[in-house]
């Protein structure tokens, strides 16, 4: 692909920008969604309202959101902050429900026994609930990551550079290879980040691995 050879530096630069937009947005989504999910798990009534509202946020069209956020937060329209906040809103909306499910997935017998042993409330959250919620949480984070990586491209429409810029530029100038590079690059980045999360998730939940291995041995 000659176009790619000639524009390698540009593509790598845009790839870097794409990562710097997507990763913070995902991280913010994860933290906020865990907080909201925990809230919804702890107080189900409040939770229904909170999760309902966050679900509604997901239905806001992206372009208006990118115009409203600069007004609300007084950041420039073309700033990375603008896009990161918008993506974090979508990510949180997508993940909060899953986070609540993740906490609900923790075995009540385990929680109760841990409490009876003398875990404090914070200890219970960090050392029991959160680790045990990880398997469900990770599956949600994977969805958010892939969705965020692809949504980053929308920023190109308001002039926030990413691999999406290859799409807008390629369409305008009718360079097919450039559009293809933008599409394939975005997809590959999504796949790589997804695999990274799977690997991190597996490393953080070794007890799950062991169990599956054992089950395989048993059925073999």
């Amino acid at each position: 692909m000659t176009w790619l050879d000639l524009n390698r530096d540009l593509v790598l630069d845009l790839l870097g920008r794409h990562v710097r937009l997507a990763v913070p947005a995902v991280l913010i989504s994860v933290v906020v969604a865990i907080a909201l999910g925990r809230l919804a798990w702890r107080w189900p009534r409040v939770g229904t309202v909170v999760l309902g509202i966050s679900g509604l946020l997901y239905s806001i069209p992206a372009l208006p959101l990118l115009i409203v956020i600069p007004v609300l937060l007084s950041v420039p329209l073309r700033s990375e902050t603008n896009l990161i906040v918008a993506l974090a809103v979508y990510g949180t909306a997508l993940l909060a429900g899953t986070a609540a499910d993740a906490f609900r997935s923790v075995d009540e017998r385990v929680r109760e026994a841990a409490e009876a042993m003398g875990y404090s409330r914070t200890g219970l959250f960090w050392r029991v609930d959160l680790p045990l919620a990880l398997p469900v949480l990770v599956s949600g984070i994977r969805v958010v990551t892939v969705s965020t990586v692809s949504l980053v491209t929308i920023g190109a429409l308001v002039g926030i550079s990413s691999l999406g810029s290859l799409l807008t530029d390629g369409f305008q100038r009718n360079i097919r290879e450039e559009v293809a590079t933008g599409v394939i690059g975005t997809m590959m980045l999504a796949i790589v980040l997804d695999l990274a999360i799977v690997a991190i998730g597996a490393a953080l939940t070794p007890w799950q691995q062991r169990r599956t291995k054992k089950q395989k041995v048993v059925t073999a």
């Binding site: 385990v110 109760e112 026994a113 003398g118 045990l132």
Partner: peptide, 29 residues
């Protein structure tokens, strides 16, 4: 919390911490 840590508690089946190795379960308190 202090009271609970001073009392040994044997839960029903399924009360061990599934994400901690046996030795770490025992060493918890």
């Amino acid at each position: 919390v202090a009271l609970r840590r001073s009392i040994g508690y044997v839960p029903q089946a399924g009360g061990l911490l599934p994400h901690r190795r046996v030795v770490d379960n025992v060493a918890t308190v």
